[in-house]
């Protein structure tokens, strides 16, 4: 993983208050690593006028106050960060406060909990049982925090085909909805409109406004889905999503 080269990126203007930095190496894994490291660096560098960074898959949106810093200055700043990342990858271990956490998410599939389960099976040309088996088969890495409200965005499951979005997005999807679209999977932490196919629901509380952070996971953590019966659903209601492993505060290898 270590290389002395400054990661290859493109920096695009995105208005007077943001720039989009895109990692453009041929390796998606490396690109993800680059943008999340850059976001981590920007988060801890205390630059005046910098609001924060939003990393996703191959890009990071860097937001700033144009009264304090210009897009041009921000660009130079990003390049400095990238150079430091290229030269000092291992030193940055300290910038990550903890190692990756693991989560297990109980899911009631189908029925009222997952109204699109059968549609997805039909579209994929596989059985409902196979959709559930594929969805709960793998351990997912949380790639980024998406909308709404810190949704954990993940790659997969290993379905034969990408899943099309709903033609008519729902006005309201319940908290805990387990959804798929394209080649991505997600949990909805809060009630929100949504255009993804909902195949199940977790009874666990994911988002808690009384906690800091509001959601227990962050990019780099891993997550697994475990099927439960519809009857078991109520047994979990009121419980929070918690990590299986305690946070390792001194990781040897940082994200």
């Amino acid at each position: 993983m270590s290389t002395n080269a400054t990661p290859a990126v493109e920096i695009h203007e995105s208005g007077d208050s943001a720039v989009r930095v895109v990692a453009v190496s041929a390796d998606p894994e490396r690109n993800w690593d680059t943008v999340h490291r850059l976001a981590g660096w920007l988060d801890t560098c205390d630059a005046e006028g910098l609001h924060g960074a939003v990393p996703t898959y191959d890009s990071v949106l860097v937001e700033f106050d144009p009264a304090v810093v210009s897009a041009k200055q921000l660009r130079a700043y990003v390049l400095l960060g990238l150079r430091q990342l290229g030269l000092r990858q291992l030193d940055l271990a300290g910038s990550s406060a903890r190692g990756p956490l693991e989560f297990e998410v109980p899911v009631a599939y189908g029925g009222d909990f997952g109204p699109d389960l059968e549609k997805v099976a039909e579209q994929q040309g596989i059985t409902v049982a196979e959709v559930i088996a594929l969805h709960s088969a793998k351990s997912y890495t949380i790639r980024c925090m998406g909308a709404p409200a810190g949704s954990p965005m993940m790659d997969g499951p290993d379905f034969p085909l990408p899943v099309p979005r709903l033609k008519d997005p729902r006005l309201s999807v319940p908290a805990g909805a387990i959804a798929v679209a394209g080649r991505q999977a997600v949990i909805a932490p809060a009630v929100a409109p949504g255009g993804w196919c909902v195949i199940g629901q977790t009874p666990l509380t994911v988002l808690d406004l009384g906690r800091d952070p509001l959601v227990p996971y962050r990019p780099g953590d891993t997550l697994r889905f475990r099927p439960i019966s519809h009857e078991e659903f109520n047994d979990y209601v009121g419980s929070h999503l918690e990590a299986l492993n305690p946070a390792d505060l001194h990781p040897e290898v940082a994200l």
Binding site: S17, A18, V54, T56, Y57, S59, L61, G182
Partner: peptide, 12 residues
Amino acid sequence: AEVLSRGVPVGA
């Protein structure tokens, strides 16, 4: 083509 989810600026 599908676009990977990206951070979008206010004003987009």
